[in-house]
């Protein structure tokens, strides 16, 4: 499923710090909302960990709680030194993982 969107510049110069933008479709159910009909609390269901790798190495990660908005957006930077691949992993607390990849040409 086309759940995630990632923006990585296609090209960069060695030593450049690039901006990366990520979005993923997820309700981020906080566990604090009540079902309007039953009055019962809706169980928490969130993405609790986001990890960004560059050529296999984790360079940025983030731990999330129910206070992160639905359809989470996260942007951050990376200092690139050689061409390669980015991997982005969203870990859902139910154990599911969503992945996205992107390539960069560094000159």
């Amino acid at each position: 499923m086309a759940k995630a969107r990632v923006k990585v510049p296609g090209k960069a110069k060695a030593g450049e710090v690039i901006l990366i933008k990520t979005l993923i479709r997820h309700k981020m159910e906080s566990g604090n909302r009540k079902d309007k009909k039953t009055g019962q609390k809706i169980p928490r269901h969130i993405i609790d960990k986001f990890t960004a790798k560059y050529n296999g190495e984790v360079f940025f990660s983030s731990d999330w709680e129910g206070g992160v908005s639905a359809n989470p957006y996260c942007s951050f930077n990376c200092k690139v030194d050689k061409s390669g691949a980015f991997e982005f992993i969203w870990h859902d607390e139910k154990g599911e993982e969503f992945k996205a990849e992107a390539k960069i040409e560094v000159s």
Binding site: A2, A4, G10
Partner: peptide, 24 residues
């Protein structure tokens, strides 16, 4: 800096490129 984005998961050819074109 080149801002020509490359995307994944959404990389469905031309349509996705259109989606990326306005992120400049």
């Amino acid at each position: 800096m080149t801002r020509k984005g490359n995307k994944s998961m959404g990389a469905m050819g031309g349509l996705a490129a259109l989606a990326g074109a306005a992120g400049l």
